[in-house]
């Protein structure tokens, strides 16, 4: 009986000690993960700032004209129209919007 009681007390003590040690171990682990999270958040922010700078309209326009030779459409070259057919053949596409680039229409007509 005494031996059982001794074993039980010893187990409880060991359990308590193991629990304390484990808490400290997990604490260190949490801190490591937190530090890692901070680093990843910094990296995310850095990338976001870079992305935002790279997608600035001014830069895109400069690249489009300088590198790709693109230019602003001439006066009246792009026309946006709304169309509402009286008897829609395709009810799903009954109403919509099309953009006509003047030069492209001309080329197709040829």
């Amino acid at each position: 009986m005494k031996a059982v009681a001794f074993a039980a007390v010893t187990s409880l003590v060991l359990l308590f000690v193991w629990e304390r040690v484990d808490i400290v171990r997990i604490g260190y682990h949490i801190e490591r993960l937190k530090a890692q999270k901070v680093l990843l958040e910094r990296e995310r922010d850095e990338l976001q700032v870079k992305l935002s700078g790279l997608t600035a309209p001014e830069r895109i326009a400069r690249l489009a004209s300088d590198k790709l030779g693109m230019m602003q459409p001439e006066k009246g070259q792009v026309v946006v129209i709304n169309f509402e057919p009286e008897t829609p053949a395709n009810p799903v596409a009954a109403e919509g919007e099309i953009r006509i680039a003047k030069n492209m229409v001309t080329r197709r007509a040829r």
Partner: peptide
Amino acid sequence: GEQVLNYLGVAVDEPVKLAMAGLES
């Protein structure tokens, strides 16, 4: 105005005249 209306996808309010002009040129 021309660039922004185009960017916003605002439909022309003088469509026939311009569409015809585009096809004729």
